[in-house]
C-alpha cells in the first residue's frame, strides 16, 4: 500500500531512554538543591564576611573524615552491585549507613556542646547550615536503609540497580555540599 512508503523509518512505538531520563532528572534535582546550599553559603558570607566563632576543630575534622569515608564505601557499594556482587554491596551499604549515622551523631554532639547561641548571627548561620545539611544526611540514611532492605530481599542485579545508584549519588551530593560547608563553617577565620 502506498501509504506505507515513507513509514519505513518510523517505529511503531517510540522507545524512550528511561534510565537516562532518571539520571538527568536526578542531576537537575541536585542542580536545584545546590542553589539552596549556595544561597545559604552566600548568606553566611554576606552576614559574617569571613569571621566566625571558635568551634571544635578536631570534631569538625573528624566528622568530615567520617563523611568522606562513607562516600568511599558508598562508591564501593555501587561498583559492587554494578558487577553483580550483591553481598559486598550489602555490607558496604551497611558500613555507609553506620558512618552516616556517626556523622549525624557528631553534628548532634557539636550542637549540644557549642558554646555560641543560635540567637547570635553566627549561631543562626551555623545551626541552620549544619541543620539543613543534617536533614539531607538523615533522609539519605533513610534512603540507604530502604535500598539495603530491598537488596537484602534480593531485588537488584548488575543490570537493574537504579535505586542503588540514585541513592548513592544522592549520598555523594550531600558529601559535596559538606566539602563546601566544612571550610566555610570551621576553617575560615
Amino acid at each position: 500500500m502506498a501509504l506505507a512508503g515513507t513509514a519505513a523509518h518510523a517505529p511503531e512505538h517510540v522507545v524512550h531512554d528511561k534510565a537516562k531520563m532518571k539520571l538527568v532528572g536526578l542531576w537537575l534535582f541536585f542542580f536545584s538543591e545546590s542553589v539552596l546550599f549556595g544561597l545559604l553559603l552566600s548568606a553566611r558570607f554576606y552576614l559574617e564576611r569571613i569571621n566566625r566563632e571558635e568551634v571544635d576543630q578536631l570534631l569538625g575534622l573528624g566528622i568530615t573524615c567520617v563523611l568522606l569515608l562513607s562516600s568511599v564505601t558508598a562508591f564501593t557499594a555501587e561498583t559492587a552491585i554494578e558487577h553483580d556482587r550483591r553481598k559486598l554491596a550489602g555490607w558496604m551499604l551497611v558500613v555507609t549507613i553506620l558512618l552516616g549515622t556517626g556523622f549525624a551523631c557528631g553534628v548532634g554532639f557539636e550542637w549540644g556542646t557549642a558554646h555560641f547561641s543560635k540567637e547570635q548571627a553566627f549561631g543562626s548561620i551555623f545551626f541552620t547550615m549544619t541543620g539543613i545539611h543534617a536533614a539531607h544526611v538523615i533522609s539519605g540514611i533513610g534512603l540507604l536503609v530502604l535500598t539495603w532492605f530491598q537488596l537484602a530481599r534480593g531485588r537488584f542485579s548488575g543490570k537493574d540497580h537504579w535505586p542503588v545508584s540514585g541513592t548513592v549519588m544522592y549520598w555523594h551530593f550531600v558529601d559535596v555540599v559538606w566539602v563546601f560547608f566544612y571550610p566555610a563553617l570551621y576553617l575560615v577565620k
Binding site: F75, M169, H172, D175, V179
Partner: peptide, 25 residues
C-alpha cells in the same frame, strides 16, 4: 592572611568536589 586562607580553602573545596562529582558520581 584571611584572604589567602579564603582563596586556598575555596580552591581546595572546588578540587575535592570535582573529584567526587567526576569519579564517584
Amino acid at each position: 592572611s584571611d584572604q589567602v586562607r579564603f582563596v586556598g580553602l575555596a580552591l581546595a573545596a572546588i578540587a575535592k568536589s570535582w573529584l567526587i562529582v567526576y569519579f564517584f558520581m
